[in-house]
Simulated scan of single mutants.
Amino acid sequence: MMKYNYGGFLNTAKSLINPIIKLPTEINDLEKLRDILKKDITFTLFKNVNKRKFQSLKYIPERDGGDNLKFFTCFHNLCYNTETNDIEEQKEYFLKALNDHPYFFTEFYKGMNNIKSMDELIKAFDEIVMDESNIIIDGSIVALKHVATGKYLTSIDNLHYTTGSEGPIVYTGNSRFDPNACWYIFVNNGKYNDYIYTKSDISFQHKISGNSLGICNYSQQVRYSRHLSRTQYKYHKSPSSNHTEVNCDGNEREWKIDYSRLENYEGYLKSNDIINLSIKKSFDINGHTQDGQVEFLRSHDVQFTIGNDTFQEVVCHNERLAENDEWCIELIRQA
């Protein structure tokens, strides 16, 4: 009797079944009870309801208010409730749930053929989520660490150059993180919360001051004679090395990202990537031009002073690229 009644479990299970479901009297084990219940119309309705839920299941990233643990639990339960046991069918349902989010959809699709079980599916997607959390998104807060010195690109709102533009200074400061080294990063002409790619045109806005990282052009009237003069266009020079000054209130602010160690690489910009930053000048000596000089952001050992304080200079230059032109971009907070 124990063999068939499972120590009383069978009677307990039968007592929990809704009375509207009529059970044959000859049921004497749990397997037979399960098979009978599966043939009932209510089970068919149950499966169809869950299949509709499966078909409408949508993944919501955690940064948009989603909960990955709840999503995985729901997905797993829907597989069970709809008797979707084949891993290929499970993968198709999972991929469909990612359809509104191109990054997750694409990355999961790339590795689908290597997934052979539910555990592997969950592990693979969790790795994709972890990788996505390191992607720098439009509106994120970042820091730029100078690779050669380990010092952060910094600006102080109320501290200005005493030469050149006399705008807010930019320099490489402490090797320890400082709030003055926080910058918002934006894609120019992009959408807020878009992923940022290499080759993107971007701008950096200082988190504390709200001013933007850039360079500054100005016009100057040059007189050749009593009756002849001409307007020339120039850029303010850095205080010590006579390169192009970099400040935190420039009138040219559009930077381009390149991977310094992977030529022609195109992909998502991620935390701890090593990059070069360049800016294309909008003017030459004669005026506005489409073929302006491209210069790169550099910090070096040259210093300048303001009062009794000494700062490590940051400039733009058009010389050959070197290790002083490499910056490590660190994600402080994803948008």
Rank of each mutant, 00 (worst) to 15 (best):
A181R: 02
R176Y: 13
I156Q: 14
D157E: 14
L159G: 05
F186G: 07
L144I: 04
L159P: 01
G164W: 09
V147Q: 06
K199I: 03
F177Y: 08
F177M: 14
R176I: 15
L144T: 03
N180P: 00
L153G: 02
E166M: 14
L159A: 09
S175V: 08
T149D: 03
C182G: 06
Y192S: 13
S165T: 06
T149V: 01
E166G: 07
F186E: 14
A143F: 00
N188W: 01
N189S: 13
T198W: 03
Y195V: 13
Y195A: 10
A181D: 06
A143W: 00
F177C: 04
N188P: 01
I196W: 11
I169N: 10
P179Q: 10
G190S: 09
D194I: 04
I141V: 15
N189E: 13
H146S: 11
V187M: 06
K151L: 04
T198V: 11
Y171R: 05
Y197F: 15
L153N: 08
Y152N: 03
I169R: 06
E166L: 08
L144Q: 02
T163I: 06
T162K: 09
T172E: 10
Y197K: 14
L159Y: 04
G167V: 00
I169H: 05
S155L: 05
D178Q: 10
Y152L: 02
N180W: 01
I185Q: 10
G164I: 02
H160T: 12
K151C: 06
I169K: 07
K199V: 11
A181F: 01
T162R: 08
I156C: 08
N180L: 05
L153R: 10
Y192H: 13
E166H: 13
G173A: 04
I169Q: 07
P168V: 07
S175P: 00
V187P: 02
T149H: 04
T162P: 05
G164H: 09
P168N: 09
N158Q: 11
I185A: 14
T154M: 10
F186V: 01
Y192W: 10
D157F: 00
L153T: 02
P179Y: 11
N193V: 10
K199G: 11
W183D: 06
L159C: 12
Y195H: 12
A143I: 00
S175D: 12
I169F: 07
H146L: 05
N188Y: 05
D178H: 11
T154C: 12
Y184Q: 12
G190E: 07
I141C: 01
A148I: 04
K191G: 03
C182N: 15
A143P: 00
V170H: 06
W183E: 04
W183T: 07
I185K: 07
T154P: 00
N188T: 08
I185T: 07
H160Q: 06
S165N: 08
N158R: 11
T172W: 08
N180F: 08
F186Y: 15
Y184F: 15
N193K: 15
V187R: 15
Y197E: 15
V142T: 08
K145I: 01
G173N: 03
I141T: 13
T198Y: 15
V142F: 02
H146I: 02
T172L: 03
S165K: 03
T149K: 15
